[in-house]
Design a protein around this nucleic acid. Structure first.
Length: 810
DNA sequence: ATGGGGACAGTTTTT
DNA sequence: CTGTCCCCAT
């Protein structure tokens, strides 16, 4: 069962008092709060519009004002407006803001939700057109992989050599591109040992029998329906007078097709996005969609939102200069009225631990208020990393020094083992025939129903065309199991039957009733008002968790996670209070998946750059700017040009999260999979404008200044930067050690390399690798053959002459 | 049926 | 150096 927000009702957002206020305020008060570009984006109502909205330019403000304006001017009734987002969070925010603007009193509710939630709603009405029943269940990745594994085994393939995970990736890729099994053509049929498309077809068939879909299917099925049933398509084309799309740069082919089909009616489609913030190419997003917009929708108005209200001029200049290196941009430059502020800071540290230590100290210093901006609390500071494994060094360090932090990311609430188990029990209570749920918990907690017993049940079910639940009953009747196992199974089956009765008793025949009349699109309203809540389902759920022995299992578990899991189960039950019945809850799991729970706590945020998109913090730290880590080696290997550009956009996203102060850092050494590796500073560092960057002295042993001083660029900027570098303590230290300065070329950029004057054959010492011999040099790097490690290329500033090894204090 | 140990891989993540 | 998955011994 998936956990996303199927319900995107606009419920309860509008009250009558708000309505009165709205009337008094006058129809379009909010319009006057917009800048000229935003205003154009709001008032250009007819035809296709592309709103190119840079980071921090008030995109949501414009988008929500546009919706309000459409309604206020009577261009469309609320429910004739379709607005799609990618995340529930974005959808929620838009709903809140639109209702605030309108102040209530509107007739109906816009279709505002994620691509997936809107598609669920539509697909439930037309499920039979793709061979499904309207009450289909939505599987998440876990279920998906378990199914695929079964199919791979059934196809006599070695599931080790051909992992289900990989097949899932391939199939997702196809679905992202709106390819049904019969449309997978050419070289792609060779995927997965030549069996890819065959397994894909089998998988789709299996989903159909289970009356289930995966996430990709939600869009894929809707696209298929629109393509094959013109009458259905025409209805929606007529119905949705205005379409709005958020984060258009993140759409994949299926979403693009879906939108294009729907927009062909009134042609009033407004797409909002930023090609410079397209960072999800690896999961099917096509930057091409936004780049091609004007071709796809001829006569489109393109409106650029470039005035930034978030960051200082230095931060914007750094971000702008960096992203300018990318080719194939629509072009856009952020500017701000705000002047002054601190430059982007750059520092090189010895290794990952040192980096964590330094950042920890900076955070404390900022909190104490040593800078001009005054004290900055923890919750205003964030560390944004490229890969989640980087978080560990910070967690370790912060735990030691007692610095409060919070990690965003990690497994979501609904993805946790105990929540999924509990959900499987609830699913069985609602529909005992849910085979995937049955399979999941038949032996959780351990009931002595292992492979053997489960195979017996499987066989009985398959041979008689029954669900596992009915198969189990059959096995019990025919005495196909030994005494102990039979007893346990009987208990399990009887429990399910009893829970099911209770569910049916509690909510008589109110099972999801999506089958409305397709011809009456007037009925195309958002969701109905829920009936009164008698909380009987809460007791039932508690009963289920008790009867099944599931709670007991965790109570008896002595592992350190157990208490947390029990805590989560309690939270799950608590979340149920907001729903009138179990079915409703199962459809709404997503509401509790928000993991920004303890927001408001005074904690430093640690998260990935991807997770940070759309957020902002006064203070931002960007650690790990090292080639191979960021930009990540893998992206560059997979698609050198494309991959590097996406990484650069990620860097752009990172810098533009900062309001006041942005600090970039890199380490010269890093432990990768237990091996010490020497790191080179990220090439992105060379792409920053020196005039807007302050190079901090690192205080590293041996200067350790690396590319921090090997940094700058041509023209006036260059001189300014070099002067800073010369004056810095790190530089002076190196001078005294016999370091020479020679500008070097790297690509098109001039680098003020401080080429360390080591000679070929000279003995040197490195903190992690020990002694070695210099084989050659290349710009600011040297090649060293270490006695006790491999030959490595590293920054000259990370080694010292062998006879100075004693001076290195560690 | 179950848990311990060996083999193995190892970005980014929403729905 | 982790964490995960699977196999095999109990």
């Amino acid at each position: 069962m998936s956990g996303f927000d199927e319900d995107d009702a606009f419920e309860g957002a509008l009250s009558l008092s708000q309505r009165a206020m709205g009337a008094m305020r006058g129809a379009a008060g909010y319009i006057h709060e917009l800048n000229p570009a935003q205003r154009a984006a709001v008032e250009t109502l007819d035809g296709p519009v592309l709103m190119l909205a840079g980071a921090g330019t008030g995109k949501t403000k414009a988008l929500t004002a546009r919706i309000a304006h459409l309604i206020d001017t009577g261009r469309a009734r609320p429910n004739e407006i379709l607005a799609v987002t990618f995340t529930n969070k974005a959808a929620r925010e838009m709903k809140e803001r639109v209702s605030r603007l309108l102040g209530g009193g509107i007739d109906g509710v816009p279709w505002l939700g994620t691509f997936h939630s809107v598609c669920v709603k539509l697909l439930r009405r037309h499920a039979e057109l793709v061979g499904l029943k309207p009450n289909f269940t939505i599987l998440d990745t876990d279920d998906q992989i378990r199914l695929l594994k079964q199919l791979i085994v059934a196809a006599n393939m070695d599931e080790k050599r051909w992992p289900a995970r990989q097949l899932a990736g391939i199939i997702d890729g196809w679905k992202n591109r709106a390819l049904t099994p019969d449309r997978v053509k050419g070289a792609e049929t060779a995927a997965f040992n030549n069996r890819g498309s065959e397994l894909y077809a089998a998988y789709q068939e299996r989903l159909r029998t289970l009356n289930a879909v995966d996430f990709g299917d939600l869009l894929l099925h809707m696209v298929s329906i629109f393509q094959m049933h013109d009458d259905v398509l025409k209805q929606y084309q007529r119905w949705f007078k205005y379409i709005l799309v958020d984060e258009y740069q993140d759409t994949n082919v299926a979403q693009y097709l879906w939108l294009r089909l729907l927009a062909q009616g009134h042609r009033n489609i407004c797409c909002v996005g930023d090609d410079d913030q397209s960072i999800y190419g690896w999961r099917g997003a096509e930057v091409g969609n936004i780049l091609r917009f004007e071709k796809d929708f001829p006569g489109a108005a393109v409106i650029r939102l470039e005035q930034n209200y978030r960051s200082t001029e230095h931060i914007l200049a750094a971000a702008s200069r960096l992203i300018a290196t990318n080719e194939g941009r629509l072009g856009k430059e952020l500017w701000t009225e705000a002047k002054g502020g601190e430059k982007v800071r750059l520092i090189g540290l010895w290794d990952g631990e040192e980096e964590a230590r330094w950042i920890g100290e900076e955070i404390e210093a900022l909190r104490r208020g040593t800078r001009a901006m005054g004290p900055v609390s923890y919750d205003k500071q964030a560390i944004l990393v490229r890969a989640s494994h980087q978080m560990r060094a910070f967690e370790d360090r912060f735990l030691t020094i007692g610095l409060p932090y919070r990690v965003i990311g990690g497994p979501r609430f609904y993805e946790r083992l105990e929540i999924r188990d509990a959900m499987a029990y609830f699913r069985l209570a609602v529909s005992p025939d849910d085979d995937l749920a049955f399979e999941r918990v038949v032996n959780t907690p351990k009931r002595g129903l292992g492979d053997k017993a489960q195979n017996t049940i499987q066989r009985a079910a398959r041979e008689n065309g029954l669900s596992l639940f009915d198969g189990a009953r059959l096995v019990l009747q025919s005495g196909g199991l030994s005494g102990k196992a039979a007893g346990q199974l009987r208990l399990f089956v009887e429990n399910i039957a009893r829970w099911h009765e209770a569910v049916r008793g509690a909510s008589p025949a109110t099972a999801t009733s999506p089958a409305e009349d397709d011809d009456a699109l007037i009925e195309l309203e958002a969701d109905a008002v829920p009936p009164a809540n008698d909380h009987s389902h809460i007791r039932l759920v508690e009963q289920i968790l008790e009867d099944s022995g599931y709670v007991e299992m965790w109570v008896n578990d002595k592992t350190p996670e157990a208490p947390g899991r029990l805590e989560n189960l309690k939270e799950l039950v608590k979340a149920l209070e907001q729903f009138e019945n179990l079915q409703g809850f199962l459809e709404h799991v997503a509401l509790i998946m928000d993991n920004d729970r303890d927001e408001g706590d005074q904690k430093v945020t640690i998260m990935t750059l991807h997770a940070a998109k759309g957020l902002e913090f006064p203070i931002v730290f960007l650690p790990g700017w090292e080639d191979g880590l960021f930009p990540s080696q893998r992206s560059m290997d997979e698609a050198p040009q494309k991959g590097l550009e996406e990484e650069r956009r990620l860097a752009y996203v990172g810098i533009t999260r900062a309001e006041e102060l942005c600090t970039i850092s890199f380490a010269g050494n890093r432990r990768v999979y237990g091996q010490w590796q020497s790191q080179l500073p990220s090439r992105f560092i060379d792409e920053l404008p020196a005039a807007h960057v302050e190079v901090l002295p690192s205080g590293m042993v041996g200067g350790g200044f690396g590319a921090a001083s090997a940094y700058g660029r041509g023209g006036i900027e260059e001189r300014a930067s070099r002067a800073d570098v010369y004056a810095s303590p790190g530089w002076q230290r190196m001078q005294s050690r016999g370091v020479s300065s020679q500008p070097q070329r790297r690509g098109a950029m001039i680098i003020d390399a401080e080429t360390v004057a080591f000679e070929i054959g000279e003995r040197v010492f490195h903190k992690k690798f020990g002694y070695g011999e210099v084989l050659g040099s290349e710009g600011d790097k040297i090649v060293v053959a270490f006695d006790k490690a491999d030959t490595k290329k590293l920054l000259a500033s990370f080694v010292v002459p062998a006879d100075e090894a004693d001076d290195v204090p560690f």
